[in-house]
Deep mutational scan, measured.
Amino acid sequence: TTLTVNTQTYTFTSEEEAREFARRYGAKTIRKTNGTWEVHG
Rank of each mutant, 00 (worst) to 15 (best):
E17W: 02
H40G: 08
T29D: 08
G26K: 06
T9N: 07
E20G: 02
S14Q: 03
A18Q: 00
V5K: 09
S14R: 04
S14T: 10
R24A: 06
I30H: 04
G26W: 03
R23L: 08
R24T: 06
K28V: 15
I30G: 01
T11N: 05
S14G: 02
I30C: 09
Y25T: 14
L3W: 04
E16G: 05
K28T: 14
T11P: 02
G41N: 09
T13V: 07
Q8R: 08
A27D: 03
K32H: 11
E38V: 13
G35N: 07
T7F: 13
R23F: 06
T2F: 06
A22E: 02
Q8C: 15
T29F: 14
E15H: 04
T29K: 06
E20I: 06
T11R: 09
N6R: 03
Y25P: 00
T29P: 09
E17A: 09
T1I: 10
N6P: 13
R19P: 00
A27P: 02
T9C: 15
F12Y: 01
V39Q: 00
T33F: 09
F21N: 01
E16T: 08
A22G: 03
N6D: 12
A18E: 01
E17N: 03
V39A: 02
T2Y: 05
E38H: 04
S14V: 04
F21L: 02
T36Q: 11
N34L: 04
E15F: 13
R31D: 04
R19I: 11
Y25L: 11
H40D: 12
R24W: 06
T1V: 09
Y25A: 07
G35T: 04
N34R: 03
I30E: 04
S14C: 08
R24P: 01
T33A: 14
Y10K: 06
T9S: 08
F21V: 02
A22Y: 03
V5Q: 13
A18R: 00
A27I: 13
F12V: 00
R23N: 07
E38C: 10
G35E: 05
W37E: 00
R24Q: 08
T13N: 10
T13G: 08
G41C: 15
I30N: 02
Q8F: 12
S14W: 01
S14E: 04
T29W: 14
R23M: 07
A18K: 00
A22L: 04
T11S: 09
K28F: 10
G26T: 02
E38A: 04
E20W: 06
K32R: 09
T11M: 07
W37G: 00
T9M: 10
T13A: 11
I30V: 10
T33M: 10
Q8H: 13
N6W: 10
A22P: 00
I30W: 03
F12C: 09
E16H: 09
K28N: 09
T4M: 08
V5W: 08
Q8V: 14
E38Q: 07
K28Q: 12
T7L: 11
V39R: 00
F21A: 03
G41H: 14
E17F: 02
T4I: 13
K32L: 13
G35F: 03
T13M: 09
E15A: 05
H40V: 15
V5E: 12
T36H: 12
E20K: 07
R23Q: 09
V5L: 09
T29M: 15
T9E: 04
A22T: 01
N6Y: 09
V39L: 02
T4V: 13
T1M: 12
K32G: 08
Y25N: 08
R24C: 06
R31Q: 11
G41K: 10
N34T: 03
T36L: 15
R31W: 07
V5Y: 08
E17Q: 07
F12H: 00
T36K: 11
T33W: 08
Q8Y: 13
N34G: 07
L3D: 13
G26P: 02
K28D: 09
S14A: 03
F12A: 00
W37P: 00
H40Y: 14
Y10S: 02
T11D: 02
E20A: 10
L3V: 12
V39K: 01
T13Q: 10
V39S: 01
T36P: 01
T9F: 12
G35S: 04
E15Y: 14
I30P: 02
N34F: 02
F12R: 00
G26D: 04
